[in-house]
Simulated assay, not measured.
Amino acid sequence: MARRLGGHGGNTWIPGAFTRIDGVNERLVVVVGYHGVELLDIASVTSTLDMANRMGAAPAYRMVFVTPGGAAVECNSGLTLSGQQALEQVNDAIDTVIVSGGLGHADAAADERFVGHVRRLARHARRVASVCTGASVLAAGGLLDGKRATTHWFYASEIAAAYPKVEFDPEPIFVRHGNVATSGGVTSALDLTLAFIEEDHGAELARRISMGLVTYLRRPGDQAQVSVFVGNPEPAHRLVHRLVEYITAHLAGDLGIEALGAVVGVSERHLTRLFVAELGETPARYVRRTRVEAAARLLTSSGLRLDDIAGQCGFASAETLRQAFSAQFGVAPSVYRTRQRVRADSAP
């Protein structure tokens, strides 16, 4: 049973502080919903944080789903989700506020009382974030004014027209601007949540959570919402599907075509035919592309030297990584990393 937000007594909000409950420090994450909310926008956040707790995150996360009046809300799918606490009654020390998206976002953003309470919570949170069209609620509250933000590519132009003070970019998976983060459509919330976990607890825990969720390694925030992993259809052939998972989990290992063929017990020629038919490219090209994306993640989320990143991602040397990275992203790894740091340092 979820514990209520109120009644802990003696909690004083301090930027970056943890909520203290039963003698244990915890990070309180308030997930905001409303009628017409998207269930995946909520679950992508809460399930990922729950996985972090089960894998030993310390301090742990405590998630509370809040709604207007604490009432149940109907999700886009027609399912009803009970509120655990009234939005209006949240007064505890908050680590992160996350506003969910959904088809009801426009009505939520037009509700001045609702938006006012979100703005109140944001003033007392270490981090503020939105998932998908939840960005419209943050924008309505003035929380994105003068900032770069993203939202679901399908609704981006509509939301941007309604809030001209915000620089909406529909391309990235998520955007960080100071302590405010916005994410693109639906499951990009998982990428943003993994980024938060990595920030709070380190890259290794985030990597293990990715494996636990049977998802790809966290994509860099500025990767396009239509990424290389979803640009091709999910491989239907069981051998290709198995190898895609194997490649992701063994980037530093031998992923040559002979070794891959041995994993599934087929010839190199047959394996190449399967990859071209299912993914539109040879095994070697797929492996290189996956390794480069993993390197991009480490460049943005760690201080590792390029030599170390090259080794972890399966490149023979830093120079080999530079060549592959430049070919795929159009910039050198050092330039890519510098741009991310400049963007972070320049954010208010």
Rank of each mutant, 00 (worst) to 15 (best):
G33I: 02
D22N: 14
T12Y: 06
A58S: 13
V29H: 11
R27K: 15
M55D: 04
V31D: 08
D22V: 03
I21W: 14
L40F: 12
D22L: 11
F18R: 14
T46D: 13
N25M: 02
W13N: 04
W13D: 03
N11R: 13
T12C: 01
S47M: 08
T19M: 13
T46Q: 15
N53S: 03
Y34T: 00
D22Q: 14
I21A: 13
E38Y: 14
E38R: 03
M55T: 00
D50R: 09
V37P: 08
H35E: 15
T19K: 15
G6T: 03
V24R: 15
D50M: 08
D50G: 03
G36F: 11
V29M: 13
Y34L: 01
V30C: 05
M55Q: 14
N25P: 00
R54G: 02
R54A: 06
H8M: 00
G10L: 06
G6I: 01
G36H: 03
V31I: 13
G6D: 12
L39F: 06
W13A: 03
A52F: 04
M55N: 07
G33P: 00
V37G: 06
V32Q: 12
A57W: 12
F18C: 11
L40Y: 12
N25T: 00
G10P: 04
F18N: 15
N25Q: 08
M55Y: 13
P15F: 09
N53E: 00
V37T: 04
W13P: 09
G10N: 12
A52D: 01
V31A: 10
G9C: 03
P15N: 10
H35S: 11
I21T: 09
A58K: 11
S47K: 05
R54D: 08
G33Y: 04
A52T: 00
L28Q: 14
P15W: 10
H35L: 05
V29D: 11
A58F: 08
A43S: 10
G23N: 10
V31Y: 11
D50W: 07
S47A: 05
I42N: 03
D50Y: 05
F18K: 13
V45C: 04
S44T: 06
V31F: 11
N11G: 01
V45Y: 10
S44N: 14
A57L: 02
Y34C: 00
H8Y: 12
A52P: 01
D41Q: 12
G33W: 04
E26Q: 15
V24G: 01
H8P: 00
E38C: 04
A17R: 15
G56T: 02
I14Q: 14
L40M: 13
V45M: 07
N25D: 14
Y34S: 02
N53V: 01
F18G: 01
Y34M: 09
L28Y: 07
E26F: 06
T48H: 09
E38Q: 14
G36L: 04
H35D: 15
L28P: 02
G23Y: 11
V24T: 09
G7P: 09
D22G: 13
L40K: 01
G16K: 09
L40G: 00
A57Q: 07
